[in-house]
């Protein structure tokens, strides 16, 4: 069974905490420790950002993290090596968040072969909408890797189609715009999630702009879990190789507040 599906089954209604770090920021050794520490402190699934030179869906925080990682010489092959190492110590679901060109250039077949071999459970590709998902769908299915679909508040009549075919979990983008912290949301969540609920058959989680434990608690009330990225990457940016403990503490406060 795919680890993502198993995790949501095991959670049995408990809200999922999905955390994100950019792989290789500040280096892959720290990334490994961050993953294990986040798991220890209550993260249920983890997204590893694969750095890209031109990440058009990201705000400044993750843009800068990608640049730091690229300057450090991170490559996709090295990230697969990291996943292989992590799999000796953890069974937490791991997803790669990345841009389609990285997969295309690497070779779709080779990419999913390595996902399956090393223990990647899913991929999130923000610049691959429903219309183009066949670019990866066949290979992803053959290797049992979940290709995560996204819906946004601007999706409206597209939601039913996207949610109906989604797998793993449905990634609900909280608001228009790029990734990064937001002090408030303008989205009408009752309407947005009301629409999603009508057609979704799998767990659905919300991300983009959620950075405080209080926001995480509030947003998780609408769905099955929350995704926190830039809020964590900011701590990594500030503390670098000393970020493991503070990221762990932050993860724990997110999870504990969500349980309240």
């Amino acid at each position: 069974m795919n680890r993502i599906d198993k995790k949501f089954a095991d959670l049995n209604g408990e809200k999922a905490l999905i955390t994100f770090v950019t792989a290789g920021d500040p280096d892959l050794g720290v990334t490994k420790r961050l993953v294990l520490e986040m798991e220890k402190n209550g993260a249920d699934l983890i997204e590893l950002g694969v750095p890209f030179s031109d990440p058009i869906a990201e705000g400044p925080t993750i843009q800068k993290a990608s640049l730091r990682a690229l300057k450090g010489g991170v490559t996709l092959v090295k990230i697969f090596d990291l996943v292989r190492e992590l799999r000796r110590e953890t069974e937490i679901p791991l997803l790669l968040m990345m841009y389609v060109n990285t997969i295309f250039r690497f070779g779709t077949e080779r990419f999913f072969t390595l996902c399956a071999e090393t223990g990647v459970d899913g991929v999130i590709v923000p610049d691959l909408p429903y219309e183009e998902k066949d670019e990866l769908a066949d290979a992803a299915h053959r290797f049992g890797i979940r290709q995560i679909s996204l819906v946004a508040p601007t999706s409206h009549d597209r939601i039913a189609r996207i949610a109906g075919e989604a797998e793993g979990f449905l990634y609900c983008v909280s608001s228009t715009g790029v990734t990064g912290t937001r002090s408030e949301f303008k989205t009408n969540f009752d309407e947005f999630f009301g629409e999603i609920k009508k057609s979704v058959k799998i767990p659905y989680c919300v991300g983009f702009g959620i950075s405080s434990p209080e926001q995480a608690r509030k947003m998780s009330s609408y769905c099955d879990g929350v995704i926190v990225g830039s809020g964590i990457v900011k701590i990594v940016e500030r503390f670098g190789s000393d970020s493991v403990a503070p990221v762990g503490e932050f993860t724990a406060s997110l999870k504990n507040t969500m349980k309240q």
Partner: peptide, 10 residues
């Protein structure tokens, strides 16, 4: 093709 984020697809 149309390789853009879902937010702008509509």
């Amino acid at each position: 093709g149309q390789y853009v984020p879902e937010t702008v697809m509509n």
